[in-house]
Each structure stands twice: as structure tokens, then as C-alpha cells.
């Protein structure tokens, strides 16, 4: 078999072919990303400047949708509820996730079982869990039977949103636990050994060594938690039947967006709500990046 000398030309075209193969593989996921994420995002930005219906543009409004939102009392209530919800749920999710991760990280017997058990709620669909929760938290439901009250937890404005908070904190704790667990296991063990020899007992080790070294975990869990919380919708919709009640307590930004789009068919207005939510999430993520961002390399 005669061996060919590799000329410059054949090397060049080989590089081109390799590049094409690369692009061919990336092409489909990239196209999918552009079509199903990027394009709708841009489209939503676009239609927020119009009065827009199912059949397209109705009227050019410029910034009027945004001006109306500035005066929209129901939107303000939704925003306040969503922010209050986020302010409670995020720290709780982080704390609970971290606690579970620390527990599961110990070399305890049955830790594999506990890891699976703690993660299990995250697997079930939120709609299914909410449906079950409606029964458990009904005024004649299981929870009241256990603690001896007769409150309709989802039907009272003082407890409806709080019940959803509790439900979500519990449901997502498993996912946050896994994120924290990964970050926890990235801390080299000899740092703990050095701390032990330096006389640090368990609480001090946790606060002074583990917690600061979990910065990457804090950042990731924090961001995921904030993004998820600001978009709370499923539970609010199911629990209030779409009305956001009682007394506006379960009206969230995304629920308001949904109602405006689907019930009042004001696509442009709903898109404007979406844009504002996007800006809010974006800003909070950047803030978190600044607070937790600078990752320490060992």
C-alpha cells in the first residue's frame, strides 16, 4: 500500500472537514435553542410594545403597556407577593438543602437510602403534589386532624401563600440538597483534618471552614432558587383556581401574566409583564454573582 505524503492541502481540507463535523453535531441543539428559547424571548420583547392578539398586531403602543403596569394595582400586588414569597423561600431552601446535604454527607448507615428519600419529592410533578396538598391541608384534612385545628390553610389570606411556601420548600429541598452535596464533596478532606488538628470543634469547623468554602454552592443554589421562586405559578393557580385569592394573597406575577394572556387575551400586556420579570431575575442574578461570585480556588 503506497503511503501518501501529507501535503499542506490535504491537511487544510481535513481541518475543514473536522470543523464541519463539529458544526453538524452542534447544529441541532443550537437550532433548538435558538428556535424554542431565543426567538420566543425576542418575540416577547417585541410584542410588549403593541396591543397584540392571537391574530397579530392590533395597535402600536410604544411604552404604554409599561406605563400602565406602573399604575396597575393588581400587578403591584402580584409583585409584592412574589417578592415576599422569594424572600422567604430562598433562604429556607438554601438552609434546608444545606442541612440535608451535611446530614447525608456523614458516613452514617443508610445514607444512600436517606439521599434517595430526601430527593424523592423533587421527582413528583408539582401539579400532582399540589392536588394532594389540597386534600391534606383542607379544613377537614390530614394536617388539621394531626394538630387539632380546623383551618382551611389554602383558603385564608393569612396562610394561603405561606402554605405554598412550605410546600415548595419541602418539594425542592432534595434538589438543593444534591447541589450542596456536590459542592460539599468538592472541599478537600485534608482541610478538615488540618482544622481538627488546629483545635476546631464541629460547629466552629462548619461555620469557619465548611460554610465559607461552599461559596460556589451558595451561588448556584441561590440563583436557581431565586429564579424558580420568582416564577412561582403552578401552586398558586391550582390552589386559587386561577383567581389569586383569597384576598389577592396567592396572586403571583406569572399568574397575573397568565390571566392577562389567556383570559383577557392581552398578549402585548402580558409580554410586558414577562419582560419586567425577566429584568428582575436578571438583576438579582447579577447581584448574586457579585456577592458570591468570586470563587476561591484552593
Amino acid at each position: 500500500m503506497a503511503t501518501e505524503a501529507r501535503t499542506e492541502r490535504s491537511i487544510g481540507s481535513e481541518r475543514v472537514r473536522e470543523a464541519l463535523v463539529g458544526y453538524a453535531f452542534v447544529f441541532l441543539p443550537l437550532a433548538s435553542f435558538l428556535i424554542f428559547f431565543f426567538y420566543p424571548l425576542g418575540y416577547a420583547f417585541y410584542i410588549s410594545y403593541f396591543d397584540w392578539g392571537p391574530l397579530g398586531k392590533i395597535e402600536t403602543l410604544g411604552l404604554e403597556n409599561y406605563r400602565d403596569l406602573a399604575d396597575d394595582e393588581l400587578f403591584h400586588k402580584a409583585l409584592k407577593n412574589t417578592l415576599r414569597y422569594t424572600a422567604v423561600v430562598v433562604p429556607c431552601q438554601m438552609a434546608l438543602g444545606l442541612t440535608l446535604a451535611v446530614v447525608v454527607n456523614q458516613a452514617l448507615r443508610g445514607r444512600t437510602f436517606f439521599r434517595a428519600a430526601f430527593y424523592f419529592p423533587s421527582l413528583a410533578s408539582s401539579a400532582a403534589i399540589t392536588a394532594v396538598a389540597l386534600y391534606i391541608l383542607a379544613s377537614d384534612g390530614l394536617l388539621n386532624a394531626l394538630i387539632g385545628t380546623d383551618k382551611a390553610w389554602f383558603a385564608e389570606s393569612g396562610t394561603a401563600l405561606e402554605s405554598i411556601m412550605g410546600l415548595n420548600i419541602w418539594t425542592t429541598s432534595g434538589t438543593m440538597m444534591l447541589f450542596y452535596l456536590a459542592a460539599l464533596q468538592a472541599i478537600p478532606t485534608d482541610v478538615y483534618e488540618a482544622a481538627a488538628i488546629d483545635g476546631a470543634k464541629s460547629w466552629r469547623t462548619f461555620w469557619r471552614i465548611t460554610f465559607p468554602l461552599l461559596k460556589p454552592g451558595h451561588f448556584f443554589v441561590g440563583v436557581v432558587s431565586v429564579i424558580g421562586s420568582l416564577q412561582v405559578f403552578d401552586q398558586a393557580f391550582i390552589v386559587s383556581g386561577g383567581g389569586g385569592g383569597p384576598n389577592y394573597s396567592t396572586m403571583t406575577v406569572v399568574l397575573y401574566l397568565y390571566n392577562q394572556a389567556i383570559n383577557d387575551v392581552r398578549f402585548g400586556y402580558a409580554a410586558a409583564v414577562g419582560v419586567i420579570l425577566f429584568a428582575l431575575i436578571f438583576t438579582l442574578t447579577v447581584v448574586q454573582r457579585l456577592v458570591f461570585g468570586r470563587m476561591e480556588a484552593a
Binding site: P188, V191, I197, A298
Partner: peptide
């Protein structure tokens, strides 16, 4: 913690 010894690790194990 209570043995009052100090250790120098191969990897130094400094607090990053």
C-alpha cells in the same frame, strides 16, 4: 482537637 500537636501536610492543607 485536644492533643496539642501540630501537623504539616504533604498538600499543605491551607485554608483557601
Amino acid at each position: 482537637q485536644d492533643r496539642d500537636v501540630a501537623m504539616v501536610f504533604q498538600s499543605y492543607a491551607l485554608y483557601p
